[in-house]
């Protein structure tokens, strides 16, 4: 484990930024989130036993609550959720679309907590207990969130288009 705040930032920033990017789908927002979280972490550094999981939780919480920290442009001019602005995928996708991109488009239609659970499971390889710790919920809730997310993500139109998951209210 890094012994100093500086070492932690230098060695873990890239990893945290990639996690935040996977979570938000927006590299620039991800960088802002990670920077903000790490700056706020500094005064608490000495009291944190396991900074890795702690910071991951901070990043995830920031993702859930970024609405209040977004730019005034987003706050004022856009609907309340940047990711949901991507909108549900519809039948406009061609059959040639990269399947990974198509899957990410479907992922973007999921409610945020489902999305976070999926990213923690399939990008961070967290188990139910670790995901529950990050999301602040029970493991049964984690299983339910991932199950519902997968049910949505598995739905496809064989015509080549995608069927969006039900859009969460924002």
């Amino acid at each position: 484990m890094p012994t100093s705040y500086t070492e932690f930032v230098e060695t873990r920033f890239g990893e945290l930024s990639r996690y935040a990017t996977a979570l938000t789908g927006d590299p620039h927002l991800a960088q802002d989130v990670v920077q903000d979280v790490l700056i706020r972490l500094r005064p608490r550094w000495g009291s944190i036993d396991a900074p890795g999981p702690y910071v991951r939780r901070m990043i995830t919480n920031e993702y859930f609550s970024w609405r209040r920290r977004r730019s005034v442009r987003d706050v004022v001019l856009s609907p309340p959720d940047v990711l949901t602005d991507i909108g549900p995928a519809t039948g406009d996708f061609s059959a040639q679309i990269d399947e990974r991109d198509a899957m990410m488009a479907r992922l973007s239609t999921l409610p945020r907590k489902q999305r976070a659970a999926v990213v923690l499971r399939y990008y961070e390889n967290c188990d139910d207990a670790e995901i529950a710790a990050v999301l602040g919920c029970r493991t049964s809730t984690v299983r339910s969130q991932i199950s519902r997310a997968l049910a949505t993500l598995r739905e496809v139109e064989r015509t080549g288009g995608l069927v969006a998951g039900r859009e969460g209210t924002a």
Binding site: S17, Y19, T21, A22, P27, A30, Q31, M104, Y122, L150
Partner: peptide, 29 residues
Amino acid sequence: TEELIRRGLRRRAESAPDPAVGIRTVLGA
């Protein structure tokens, strides 16, 4: 489905910006 999610998320994560700028910003703040 699970494999597509893994591949898609890895690809998405690779688009993260160069960490050097962020590190300088955090440590310089």
